[in-house]
């Protein structure tokens, strides 16, 4: 397999300014192409900014929006992952990540886990997605898209890998917090994410691509530090924290096969067992199972 060059667009979106962010996307897609990238990844809500609140409806796009189509056409010859507010036909708003290939929207992932605690208030403004599915890609391997908090639930990377993803792509707007010198790289959030990425890559024997934004929305500072982790759990590339830029690195997609042959964790997963136990737990929680709690 040819090496794949990944471009991480670690940008600082302008809050609520769809036109300015669109222009920036076009610019960086062109730059990624020039630098020989096969895949370019933008962060969560890179087209709109994160702390939208009531602006969410103003910047929402349907999947047939010509601006999205324009981006898809601009990305022809590449695989591009972009993120925006998606408005469905029945006017629900989702935080979406789309895979653009061959001039069209190839696959859309709607964020399934919307954090609504602490500094987050996403469920107030958005509807959660209901589907976690890997997508085939022109890269010749399955691609699994997830958005930020989706990766704080172990089931999401696991489902994506079992569904055929070799490359797990998480796009994020992770606000930096818990500043303490005792944390790796000085920031609690960054330390947690770094642990998660390595763990998921190793347990799913997949590449993990993490693209996190930088810049400031209101009180929140986003820390960047985008990464690519190999299927052994070893980091392949790390972008600097807090710095805006287009960062590229090369990966060998063949590493996935090598690792899965050497360490057949996915082969040995027991999805039927998990499904059975989950069915029991779900029924129990609904008060239906034999183990129904008080």
């Amino acid at each position: 397999m040819q090496p794949l060059r990944i471009a991480l667009a670690q940008i600082a979106p302008r809050l609520g300014d769809l036109e300015a962010n669109l222009a920036r996307h076009h610019e960086l897609i062109a730059a990624a192409r020039e630098r020989g990238a096969g895949l370019v990844v933008f962060p969560e809500l890179g087209l709109t900014g994160y702390q939208l609140q009531d602006l969410a409806a103003d910047v929402a796009m349907g999947l047939d929006d010509p601006r999205l189509g324009g981006l898809a056409r601009a990305a022809r010859g590449l695989s591009a992952v972009v993120s925006f507010v998606e408005e469905s036909a029945d006017h629900r708003l989702f935080i979406a990540a789309a895979l653009l290939e061959d001039g069209e929207v190839r696959h859309v992932h709607r964020k399934v886990h919307l954090p609504t605690y602490g500094l987050f208030d996403e469920r107030r403004f958005f509807a959660p997605g209901d589907v976690v599915r890997a997508a085939p890609s022109r890269l010749g391997v399955g691609l699994g898209l997830a958005v930020c908090e989706d990766f704080w639930h172990v089931s999401v990377p696991q489902l994506l890998a079992l569904d055929g993803a070799h490359l797990l792509v998480n796009v994020s707007s992770s606000p930096g917090r818990d500043l303490a010198s005792s944390h790796e790289v000085g920031l609690g959030t960054a330390a947690s994410w770094r642990t998660l990425m390595r763990t998921y890559a190793q347990l799913t024997t997949s590449f993990v691509v993490f693209c996190n934004r930088v810049g400031v929305d209101e009180s929140l500072s986003f820390w960047g530090g985008s990464e690519v982790i190999g299927p052994t759990g070893a980091p392949v590339f790390g972008a600097p924290m807090f710095e805006e830029g287009l960062f590229t690195c090369d990966i060998e997609l063949g590493d996935v096969r090598r690792e899965r042959i050497a360490l057949p964790l996915l082969r040995d997963e027991r999805p039927e067992l998990i499904a059975r136990e989950w069915d029991r737990i779900v029924a129990g929680r609904a008060g239906l199972g034999e183990d129904a709690g008080p």
């Binding site: 500043l179 303490a180 010198s181 000085g186």
Partner: peptide, 12 residues
């Protein structure tokens, strides 16, 4: 327990 990474703080 209050010690911060001053480099990160300055950057943010």
């Amino acid at each position: 327990e209050l010690a911060i990474d001053t480099g990160v703080a300055r950057r943010v």
